[in-house]
Design a binder for these strands. Structure first.
Lengths: 126, 126, 126, 126
DNA sequence: GTGGTCTAGACCACA
DNA sequence: GTGGTCTAGACCACA
């Protein structure tokens, strides 16, 4: 399903949350689709089932997935997910920009940065 | 010198780093100026001196300040600092945007966001 | 007969109990009327027959239905059911209110809440 | 600090959450006051520290408490808490009443119930 | 000392 | 088989 990156980041359960969200955002997990079993997934990626449990619990509280007792966990309505995801994304970007205004980051810097990220030619010269 | 906000934030040493960088960026700490003594500052803001020590160590590794043994810590050349600060800021913003492309954040979203942050009207000149 | 809502709910057998009670309360299942066969109902709503069995067992213990071995399950005397249902309902509401007194819920709050639920104007007659 | 009721209810961590909220609502834990240490409290009430950790984690996500890394957990602003608590309480009562309308619970039933709970005399006769 | 994360393994309810 | 809870115990970051 996915692999963990042990070098970089924070808690494993957070990484699991992020990966699941990515899979949903990319359409590889669709509305209503059943997620892999907690213990099965744990075995597959080589971590303890409690860690997966924690990740799924967070995703459930966030409304990204829902659980049917005794049956399994399922992906919530995709349009709702897409909305939550995008809102969180924009909010995170906003915070990051605002936090850095003090270091002389300008509107123009952001435009240029965004242009370079999204490969927009700046008319002729770039 | 500054106050800490204990709620919802990461480690205290990180906040201390940020505050000092802000003071430098805002010109309240100038090139070559001596930083307050570790123990004095610790007492003033009510935290353990080891925490300040840790923050100063990080700032030194980043080149933001330098320490003269037996004398104290001093603010590095301001233009160098300004450059480091801005590079870090842009790099952080870039990473944040790239991480969120998967959630359908577009170039237009970033422009709009930046407009709203920097209070640019979208009509007349742009 | 009825459909289940898998999201955000407790165990399926509990939902089955509730649905059958609702059907009786709404008069769609009448005194003495035979309930659908366990296996047939299970197939119809797409769940395991053990789950239906469990629900019927609970309803029987509550006196809501009765089973004649070899014939099937039947709805108990309606007036008795109505009494049981209402007693349980009031008892549940009572408990919920009492549990929340500690959070400054007042008699007035309850009146207002009830007014809003039952669409009573607060002006003219009351 | 408090004792658990092992007979009745659901998960222990939920009971811990409820107890802490009660203590805050009753003013026995005040704004900014430090909560007992996770491991200390666990030992005191005879459960595992992970269970307390889970409870505190939920309270933190709900905004009821906040954690300063390395220092401990503290009670959030009381007025905010009081508001959250009362909203949750009224919402829970509302849901309970609405769920039971089907069983012929009336506005009058609620009034009588509330009168009996809050010891309001109904004029002369009661 | 304080909280946070993780594992291993048990036991339970539900389908 | 599926998820949910809990314990015991380890290891880590932070103050």
């Amino acid at each position: 399903m996915f692999e963990l990156d042990y070098k970089n980041r924070g808690p494993i359960y957070e990484q699991v949350c992020d990966k699941i969200k990515e899979l949903i955002a990319m359409g590889e997990l669709k509305t209503g689709e059943q997620l892999p079993a907690v213990r099965g997934l744990a075995k597959e990626i080589g971590i303890n089932h409690n860690t997966i449990q924690k990740a799924f619990g967070i995703l459930e509280r966030e409304g990204v997935i829902y659980t049917v007792i005794g049956k399994g966990s399922f992906v919530s309505e995709h349009s709702a997910n897409a909305k939550i995801f995008k809102e969180n994304a924009l909010s995170e970007i906003k915070q990051t920009i605002e936090k850095n205004i003090i270091y002389k980051v300008t509107h123009d810097d952001i435009i240029k940065l965004s242009n370079s990220i999204f490969n927009k030619g700046v008319c002729e010269n770039d």
